[in-house]
Design a protein around this nucleic acid. Structure first.
Lengths: 282, 282
DNA sequence: GCAACAATGAAACTATTGTTTCACAATTAT
DNA sequence: ATAATTGTGAAACAATAGTTTCATTGTTGC
C-alpha cells in the first residue's frame, strides 16, 4: 500500500529515535491507516505527541504530512479483483416416482419458458426499476413463494415488502402504497376471495400489478394486471406445482438485476458482506 | 466499503436533489473514497459546494461528516479481510436471458433427480409417517421454502409446524419437540450460525433430521442428519437457485402421500372442502 | 405571471488538524 | 560534574476541514 513510505522507514529504522520508532512500528504494522487516519490519530495510537509525528515525517524527507497522504493515495490507486465458480455432478440412480416427477417438472419448465414473452418480462423489470416501493403478495400456499421473492428482490433493491405481513394488516399496508409502486402478485387456484378488494384498492392507488399465475388463470389476471407472467403448473397431486412459479420469480429477478446493473450488484455485495459480518458460513 | 452509507443512498436516491445525486453517484462509484478523502474533496470531485456536501450527509441521517467517516472505517475493519462471493452475472445478454435461465434450471433439475436415491426418499417419507410431529426449518431465504413445505405437508398430515415461527421462539418450540419427531431442514449457503445450537439440541431430543441442501454442503449435512437429499443449485446470480430445492420438497411430499395412502387423501379432500366453504375460487 | 418554497454557493464562522516554538529532560562528550 | 547536544511534549500558532447563515436562483403550484 504505502510502499515508498515503508521502504524509507525500513531504510532508516535503526537510526530513528525512540518515539519515531514507535510511529514507524505502527505504520509498518498497519500500513493502510496512513490512508484513513490523521497524523494526530496516528500519533495518539503510537503514544507520542503530535509534534513528534510531524517531525517524524519531515525527517523521512516529506515536506509535510499532506505529501505523505497524497503519495499513499496515489500508490493505492492500482488494485482490484475477484472470481467465482459453481457446482459439479456425479452418478446416476433412479426410481419410478422420481422419474415421473422429473419428467413432469421438466415439461412444465420447458413449456413455460418457451412460451414466455421476453418483452413482458423486460417490461415487468422496468416497472420494478421505476417503482418507489415494491409490494409482494402471495396468499395461502403462495405465501412461501412471496416471501422468497421478497428476499431475493430485497437483495437487489430497497423498499421491497410483503403486503399484509401481519394478519389483518391489509388496511395499514395498503395505506402505505402509492402511485407507481409495483405489486408483485403470486396467485394460483384456489384464488382467495380477499384478493378482490385488495386488487380493487390497488387499482385505485394506481399501483402497477405484475401477476405470476397459471395459464388457466391468465385471462382473469389480465383484467387487473399490467403484466401477466403465466406458468405451467401441472402436477400429479398436492395441487399445482410451484416449481415453475419459483423459477419465474428468479427469472424476473435476474432480468431486473440485468436492468438495474451496477446498483443491484453493489447492493448484493454489501448484503453478502453483512452476512459475513454476522458470521454466516459459506 | 461503506455499506450502510451505500444502502442508505440507494434507498433515497430517487428523492435526492440534483446536487445531492451528483454526490451520491460519486460515492456509489467510488465507495472507498469516503475513507480516504475529506468532505471538501468529495464535494469538489462531485462539482458541488462544501455546503451541499455537509447538508447531504445530514439529510442521510448522520450528525456530521465525522460520523460518516468513522462508520466507514469501522465497516472496513470488519469486512476487509474477505472477498465477496457473488457471481459475476454481468451480461447474460438480455434477450438470451430466458433461454439461459431455462437451460440452467433444466440441468439442475435433471442432474438432481437423476442422482437422487429413491431409497433415501422413501426412508424420509417413512420417517415422516412415523413422526408424532413434523417440524420444518428454513432460515433466511430458505424460510419461504420452509413455509411452503409446511403448508404442503400439512395438507397431508397433522402436526406439521414451522420451527421458530416467531423470532426468538427457538427455546419454546424446541421444548415441544420429542423423540421420533422429524425435523425437515432446508439449508443452503450461507448457513447461519444459529443452526448449530438448534441441531445440537435436536440431536439430544432424538429428532430424526431430514436435510434438503446443495451438493457441496452434503457431507457436512450427513454428520447431523438421518437422511440428506442433495440438490443442484447452480445459478448465474442471486445466490443458489431454490427451484430444485422446491421441487425436491414436492417430490418428498408426493412420496409421503403415496406412502400414507388413504389417510393423506382424506385429509386433502377435507381441506379442499374447507376452502370451498370459505368461498375460495378455483 | 407570481407567490411560496426548495436548492444552492459564497462567505462567515467553528472545530480540527498539522507545524513550529520553547522550555526542559535525557543523553553524550569532555 | 558540567556543558553541549538531542529528543520530547505542551502550547502557541497556522492552515484546513466542516458547518451554518444568508442572499440568490430555480421550481412548483395556483
Amino acid at each position: 500500500m504505502a510502499s515508498r513510505l515503508v521502504l524509507r522507514i525500513q531504510e532508516r529504522y535503526a537510526r530513528l529515535t525512540a518515539g519515531e520508532q514507535k510511529l514507524a512500528q505502527l505504520i509498518l504494522d498497519r500500513q493502510d491507516d496512513i490512508l484513513t487516519h490523521s497524523a494526530t490519530e496516528i500519533a495518539e495510537m503510537a503514544g507520542v505527541s503530535k509534534a513528534t509525528a510531524a517531525r517524524f515525517f519531515q525527517h523521512l524527507g516529506y515536506a509535510d504530512f499532506n505529501e505523505v497522504k497524497l503519495q499513499a493515495r496515489e500508490e493505492r490507486n492500482r488494485t482490484e479483483p475477484y472470481g467465482y465458480s459453481v457446482t459439479q455432478s456425479e452418478q446416476v440412480a433412479l426410481g419410478r416416482t422420481i422419474g415421473a416427477h422429473l419428467e413432469l417438472e421438466l415439461k412444465n419448465l420447458t413449456k413455460t419458458f418457451e412460451e414466455m414473452r421476453s418483452d413482458k418480462v423486460r417490461q415487468a423489470a422496468e416497472m420494478i426499476g421505476a417503482a418507489p416501493k415494491v409490494w409482494v403478495l402471495g396468499l395461502g400456499v403462495e405465501e412461501g413463494v412471496a416471501r422468497y421473492a421478497r428476499l431475493v428482490f430485497s437483495r437487489l433493491r430497497h423498499s421491497v415488502m410483503i403486503l399484509g405481513i401481519n394478519q389483518g394488516s391489509w388496511a395499514e399496508d395498503l395505506a402505505m402504497t402509492g402511485p407507481k409502486d409495483v405489486l408483485l402478485l403470486v396467485t394460483l387456484p384456489p384464488h382467495q376471495p380477499i384478493l378482490k378488494p385488495i386488487l380493487s384498492h390497488a387499482a385505485t392507488s394506481r399501483l402497477n400489478i405484475i401477476t405470476i399465475t397459471d395459464r388457466n388463470s391468465m385471462l382473469e389476471a389480465q383484467r387487473y394486471s399490467n403484466v401477466v407472467l403465466p406458468c405451467h403448473v401441472a402436477s400429479f397431486a398436492l395441487g399445482p406445482s410451484h416449481t415453475t412459479i419459483l423459477s419465474t420469480v428468479r427469472l424476473l429477478a435476474l432480468t431486473y438485476a440485468a436492468h438495474a446493473g451496477r446498483s443491484a450488484q453493489q447492493r448484493t455485495e454489501i448484503i453478502a458482506a453483512i452476512h459475513e459480518e454476522l458470521g454466516d458460513l459459506y
